[in-house]
Design a protein around this nucleic acid. Structure first.
Lengths: 137, 137
DNA sequence: GTTAGTGCAAACTCTTTGCAGCACT
DNA sequence: AGTGCTGCAAAGAGTTTGCACTAAC
């Protein structure tokens, strides 16, 4: 945890370590508010600090930021285990997609454009079987 | 244009047709504000109406909504010619990706999850060659 | 000791909503 | 004529920022 921060040239603080720990445990993308609410003792971190931490860690490439259809941004560790979402456009419930097919595509894109690809965000939108069944849910 | 609206069960209004026309011409995703500013005569449509129009057309599956890293939502026609973005995390300039590789993936996902896939949003994040060259731009 | 990070409160941006009037079918 | 759509103004949600204080190096 501290190593990640050191590598990024950032100071190790209780707040940052807390955020990283939560994201590591989560195994699904979390919003700033979810992180804030999950902080065991609410007084341990301020919402502004959550936002600032997420911002700097995203800039450093440590985190992946995925702006969702709901207007909130979802954050997760930027590693090969990251997950993407599938949102139902009727009931707005979210499920996770098993694997990420974009790594290879990113490598190809990197070659053709000269960009260094540091991450990606994506999300499918659809209608879940339950909403397709009773459309007025 | 009117046909699209009729098929979606919506009334044909000057404002909606204007929005659709602009999106058709654009060939790149636009934000609500860009659409509002592009309306030839500014008095022809209200910003709220732009948002409402984009919302209903997205719900009907006519438009594709892609929430960007910058906090704004980008809209485009939901057809096979749609485009995705590649954003530089340093200078925040945006370029377009040539093709969309997610159609096939969506079909597969539809089979495994039972969801009706109606769209997707995605974006790559990277560092453009120019920013990689002089990092302090 | 110095610099980077934090908390708090206020501000800002994008987007949504209530309501009265207008336009499409 | 009736219903859906629009404009306006005000509110809402999520996120950012200035400043004084604190903690990491």
């Amino acid at each position: 945890m501290q190593q990640i921060l050191k590598r990024a040239g950032l100071k190790s603080t209780r707040q940052r370590i807390g955020v990283l720990k939560l994201l590591k445990q989560a195994a699904k993308p979390l919003t700033a508010e979810e992180l804030y609410d999950s902080a065991e003792d609410k007084t341990q971190i301020n919402l502004s600090t959550v936002y600032r931490t997420l911002g700097t860690l995203t800039e450093k490439g440590v985190l992946l930021k995925t702006p969702g259809q709901d207007g909130k941004a979802y954050y997760q560790l930027n590693n090969s285990a990251h997950r993407h979402q599938l949102t139902c456009s009727v009931c707005h419930r979210v499920v996770l997609i098993e694997s990420c097919p974009l790594e290879e595509l990113g490598r190809r894109l990197s070659k053709t454009t000269g960009y260094t690809i540091t991450g990606h965000s994506f999300e499918f939108i659809g209608i879940c079987p339950s909403c397709a069944g009773h459309p007025h849910a």
